[in-house]
């Protein structure tokens, strides 16, 4: 049996690589799909597409953001300190979990 898409993604994360599969035409796919066999590693730079702060009744507020990676896929994640639409962000790691931090004015990698 081949590895599941989630297992391939997790194996990259263990090496602190934000990986994503591409289809035959080279288009990124997110979330990862079984039919995509080619994986690439993102440069880890992106732009916040939308952002919200969840405010649980019992607990601290936390950010939930959609980040458009420069390679052309959008993932749900967290931006440290709270995301702002249009903000440039860079991937960071909490153990093997990717999240994002503000990236100043770094230009798009692609």
């Amino acid at each position: 049996m081949p590895e599941s898409p989630a297992a391939v993604f997790a194996a990259h994360c263990a090496r602190r690589e934000l990986a994503y599969p591409v289809d035959a035409a080279g288009r990124p796919q997110w979330p990862p799909r079984v039919r995509a066999s080619t994986w690439r590693v993102s440069a880890g730079l992106g732009t916040v597409y939308a952002s919200t702060t969840a405010r649980p009744r019992d607990g601290e507020p936390y950010d939930v953001s959609l980040v458009d990676l420069d390679e052309g896929f959008r993932m749900l994640s967290r931006v440290a300190g709270g995301g702002r639409i249009g903000q440039r962000v860079r991937v960071a790691w909490e153990e093997a979990l990717p999240f994002f931090t503000p990236a100043g004015d770094e230009p798009r990698a692609t």
Binding site: A50, V64, M75
Partner: peptide, 26 residues
């Protein structure tokens, strides 16, 4: 249970609609 979203604990469905509202406001 979604392996790509679950770690970020988005309170669904409200977080998804909140993201849409935030984008509409923007």
């Amino acid at each position: 249970v979604d392996p790509y979203e679950r770690p970020y604990r988005p309170p669904l469905p409200v977080a998804a609609y909140a993201l849409a509202a935030a984008r509409h406001m923007h």
